[in-house]
C-alpha cells in the first residue's frame, strides 16, 4: 500500500494484474453493449486510481471497495455521457427516458455476468430497483419518480434487496 502511495509503477502493475478483471467485469455489467467503451472506461479508471491513490482512506473501506466505486461511478458517467448516448442507435425521447431505461433493464437480464447473476435470484420488484440504483446510477428519488413508488418504499426495498444479495454472495 505504501509502495502504491509512493507511486511505485511496479506495485501499480501488480495492482492492475490483481484487480483489472474484477473491475472490468463490473464495468461491463454497467456498459453492457460496447466492449470498446468498457475498456476505455477501465483504462480511465486505472489512471484515476493512480492519480488519486493518496486520497484513499483505509479506515473507510478496503482498497477494492474504493476501486470498485471508482469503476462504477466512471461507468455510470460514461453511460450518461453524450458520446455514449450518441453511440446508441435508439435514442429515447426525453419524456420516455425513465420508462425506456426500466424496460431495457428488465430485458437485459437475459445474459448476465457477475453480480447480475446474483440479481437473478431476487424478486423482480427488488431486482429492478437494484438494477436502476446500482447499475444505472439513479438516485432513490429518481427511481421513486420513474416507477411511481413512494420514496420510503424504494429505500426499504433496496435495503432488503441488498441484504438478500449479501446472503447470495457466498
Amino acid at each position: 500500500m505504501r509502495a502504491l502511495k509512493e507511486r511505485n509503477e511496479q506495485a501499480f502493475g501488480f495492482l492492475y494484474d490483481n484487480y483489472a478483471g474484477a473491475l472490468y467485469s463490473i464495468i461491463k455489467q454497467i456498459i453492457t453493449d460496447n466492449s470498446e467503451l468498457a475498456s476505455d472506461v477501465l483504462q480511465e479508471v486505472f489512471i484515476n486510481i493512480w492519480r488519486k491513490i493518496e486520497t484513499y482512506d483505509s479506515t473507510k473501506g478496503r482498497l477494492f471497495t474504493w476501486m470498485l466505486n471508482i469503476a462504477r461511478n466512471a461507468s455510470i458517467d460514461m453511460l450518461r455521457s453524450k458520446s455514449y448516448q450518441n453511440s446508441q442507435k435508439n435514442q429515447e425521447l426525453p419524456d420516455n427516458v425513465y420508462k425506456g431505461v426500466a424496460n431495457q433493464t428488465i430485458l437485459q437480464n437475459v445474459d448476465n455476468i457477475g453480480l447480475k447473476k446474483v440479481l437473478e435470484k431476487l424478486k423482480p420488484e427488488h431486482r429492478v430497483l437494484v438494477e436502476l440504483a446500482y447499475f444505472k446510477g439513479f438516485t432513490h428519488e429518481e427511481i421513486a419518480e420513474m416507477l411511481a413508488i413512494p420514496l420510503g418504499t424504494v429505500k426499504t426495498r433496496i435495503r432488503n434487496a441488498l441484504i438478500q444479495l449479501r446472503e447470495y454472495l457466498k
Partner: peptide, 16 residues
C-alpha cells in the same frame, strides 16, 4: 461484507 464482495467480484472477473 467487503471481503465477500471482493471475493465474488474476483471469481467473476472478466479478462480485459
Amino acid at each position: 461484507f467487503e471481503e465477500r464482495l471482493e471475493g465474488y467480484a474476483s471469481e467473476n472477473a472478466v479478462i480485459p
